[in-house]
């Protein structure tokens, strides 16, 4: 998909979690997020989602924030892209 969601999401993740550019660039669709990154506790996830909402001008519902959508970098990216699609 030819949009800037991937680059934007990497940048928000890097900013919120303080991941260096190497770890940020190394994220793949399969990279696990929830429960896998020690930095990603519930407050960090909430901060991350607020950062994504700010960056892309979208708004998430509680119902969208499930174990599946937050499971991996790829599932989170898909959620963001779904939100941005008009």
């Amino acid at each position: 998909m030819n949009d800037n969601s991937d680059a934007g999401l990497r940048s928000v993740l890097g900013d919120v979690l303080g991941l260096g550019p190497v770890r940020t660039a190394a994220l793949t669709a399969e990279s696990p997020l929830l429960g896998a990154l020690p930095e990603l506790d519930s407050m960090a996830i909430a901060t991350l989602l607020a950062g994504i909402e700010d960056r892309f001008g979208v708004m998430f519902d509680d119902a969208e924030l499930t174990g599946e959508t937050l499971a991996s970098y790829g599932s989170l990216l898909a959620l963001v892209r779904g939100k941005r699609r008009p």
Binding site: L34, S42, I45, A46, L49, A50, D62, L65
Partner: peptide
């Protein structure tokens, strides 16, 4: 409201976990 939403969301996610 935006600060509050973040706090509430953290609680919802913690409960889910």
């Amino acid at each position: 409201a935006s600060l509050l939403r973040q706090l509430l969301r953290a609680a919802v996610i913690a409960a889910r976990e």
